[in-house]
């Protein structure tokens, strides 16, 4: 999982003024983001990949449910621009279908992880004391477990489907945002506007949901982008190790794993296209994440 250098929105903002995104603030964020050319490349690539996966099948029809072993491992040619895979599925169509599940699981797991992590971290940071200690020791304990080992264990004992796989990946992904938001909350909770809420009789949950979390939105958004990339890689790793979605479902990791089997046979079309897509997706998300981090950093905004 990527550790993110936090945009410290609270440190540089006016101590007594909540930093909710205003139209002016949003514009500034957008300006900084757009100045990052790599980010734009990332956005364009991600949009292109998403369209390829979700819109592509509308124009490029293939049967990705019924295999045809007689056509297995055919090289690129007429009818199959990227050849066929080891059971005869059209590889180009397979990339689209595999990308759908990879992106869906990646984004779902990241959002779920962010939701749980933000809530966990904010509660721990806001209440502090024993609650904080207990909650964060749980996080530390889970972080100390080799993630891949547990992912494999869970994938082995649980019937794998898209929902379960999302939950499995998210199960460990929430730990990093929990730590980040907890640190952010420790800073925010001492701000004057939080004290004011308390002084006026506002409850803890109001402070958390209305003031703390909105002011940590930069950290959250940035983290989600990295979480998506990490989730896609985790999914690819699981698929590579044979614990991905069962056939005929596809995902890029499993496709890459199968392709590697035919490495010496020279069947490049089973390796390079899917490898490029995984790398491109992850790099795009990282570019976007880096740019968002800069954009949410008030020190980099023009006043």
């Amino acid at each position: 999982m990527s550790d993110v250098v936090l945009p410290n929105s609270a440190d540089d903002s006016d101590a007594g003024v909540p930093e909710k995104a205003s139209p002016r603030g949003s514009k500034a964020i957008l300006e900084v983001f757009l100045q990052n050319k790599l980010a734009l490349v990332g956005v364009v690539s991600l949009i292109a990949i998403t369209l390829f996966c979700f819109v592509g099948p509308i124009f490029y029809h293939t049967n990705q449910v019924i295999s045809n072993l007689a056509n297995a491992n055919n090289p690129p040619g007429r009818g199959s621009p990227l050849g066929t895979d080891f059971v005869g599925y059209d590889e180009l169509g397979r990339l689209m279908v595999g990308g759908q599940s990879s992106l869906e699981i990646g984004f779902s797991a990241a959002i779920l992880a962010a939701f749980v992590g933000v809530l966990w971290g904010a509660v721990a940071g806001y209440f502090g004391g024993l609650i904080d200690s207990v909650m964060m020791r749980i996080v530390d304990a889970l972080l100390s477990i080799p993630v891949l080992f547990v992912l494999l264990l869970m994938a082995a004992i649980i019937k794998v489907n898209q929902l379960n796989l999302t939950l499995i990946v998210a199960f460990f992904a929430w730990l990093v945002p929990a730590r980040l938001i907890r640190g952010e909350t420790l800073t925010l909770r001492s701000r004057e506007y939080i004290q004011a809420v308390k002084g006026m009789g506002g409850g803890a949950w109001r402070s958390i949901f209305v003031h703390i979390i909105p002011n940590a939105i930069g950290t959250i958004v940035v983290n989600i982008t990295f979480q998506v990339a990490d989730a896609i890689l985790a999914l690819a790793a699981l698929g590579y190790l044979g614990f991905g979605l069962p056939p005929p479902a596809a995902n890029w990791g499993a496709m890459l794993s199968q392709g590697i089997t035919f490495l010496y046979a020279g069947e490049w079309w089973l390796i390079y296209p899917v490898g490029v897509l995984i790398v491109l997706t992850v790099i795009s998300l990282n570019f976007i994440g880096d740019a968002l981090r800069d954009a949410f950093d008030v020190r980099l905004r023009r006043r």
């Binding site: 295999s67 059971v87 005929p248």
Partner: peptide
């Protein structure tokens, strides 16, 4: 084994 996976996926189809 790759071949078992190929047998089974084709049979399922």
């Amino acid at each position: 084994f790759t071949y078992v996976s190929q047998f089974m996926q084709q049979m399922k189809s």
